[in-house]
Computed example of a mutant assay.
Amino acid sequence: MKNFFRKISEQFNSSNKVITAVLTDLESSEIDENLIGEMMMVDEDGGIEYSSEKMEKEIRKYILEEEMKREILNLTNTKEAELKSIELNKDNKIELFIEPVLDNPRLLVFGAGHIASPLVKISSLMDFEITVIDDREEFLNYDNFPSADSLICLPYKDYFENFKARQNDYIVIVTRGHQFDYEVLKELIREDVKYIGMIGSSKKINEVYTKLREKDKVSDKELSRVHSPIGLKINSETPEEIAVAIAAELISVRRDKSA
Rank of each mutant, 00 (worst) to 15 (best):
M1C: 08
K7G: 00
I8T: 05
S9F: 13
E10L: 14
N13A: 05
N13H: 08
S14V: 01
S15G: 11
N16R: 14
N16K: 15
I19D: 05
V22Q: 14
D25S: 09
D25N: 14
L26Y: 08
S28I: 09
S29L: 15
E33I: 12
E33H: 15
L35I: 12
L35Q: 06
L35F: 10
I36R: 07
I36S: 04
G37R: 09
G37C: 11
G37T: 12
M39I: 00
M41C: 12
M41G: 02
D45T: 14
D45R: 15
D45G: 04
G47P: 00
E49H: 09
Y50E: 05
M55V: 11
K61F: 03
K61T: 12
I63H: 08
E67T: 15
M68F: 01
R70P: 00
N77E: 14
N77T: 14
N77A: 11
K79Y: 12
E82W: 00
L83T: 08
I86S: 04
I94W: 05
I94V: 15
I98D: 01
E99I: 11
P100D: 06
N104F: 14
N104K: 15
R106D: 10
L108N: 05
L108A: 05
V109P: 07
A112H: 09
H114I: 13
S117V: 11
L119T: 04
L119M: 09
K121R: 15
I122D: 02
I122L: 15
I122G: 06
L125C: 09
D127T: 01
F128V: 08
I130W: 02
I130Q: 03
I130C: 01
T131P: 01
V132K: 00
I133L: 11
R136V: 05
R136Y: 06
E138P: 02
F139R: 07
L140E: 01
S150R: 15
P155S: 05
P155D: 10
Y156L: 12
K157D: 14
D158W: 05
D158G: 03
Y159W: 07
A165Q: 12
R166F: 10
R166Y: 13
Q167Y: 11
D169S: 07
I171W: 02
V172G: 03
T175R: 04
G177A: 11
G177V: 07
H178P: 08
Q179I: 10
F180A: 11
D181R: 01
E183W: 02
E183C: 02
V184A: 05
L188A: 04
D192F: 07
Y195C: 07
Y195K: 05
I199V: 13
G200W: 05
K204E: 08
E207R: 11
K211C: 06
E214D: 13
E214P: 01
K215Y: 06
K217M: 06
V218W: 05
V218N: 05
S219K: 08
D220K: 13
E222A: 13
E222K: 07
E222M: 12
V226E: 01
H227T: 02
H227S: 02
P229E: 13
I230W: 04
K233C: 00
K233N: 14
T238D: 06
T238S: 15
A245V: 00
I246S: 02
A247H: 03
E249A: 03
E249G: 04
L250G: 06
L250Y: 02
V253M: 00
R255P: 00
K257Q: 04
K257P: 03
S258F: 01
S258Y: 12
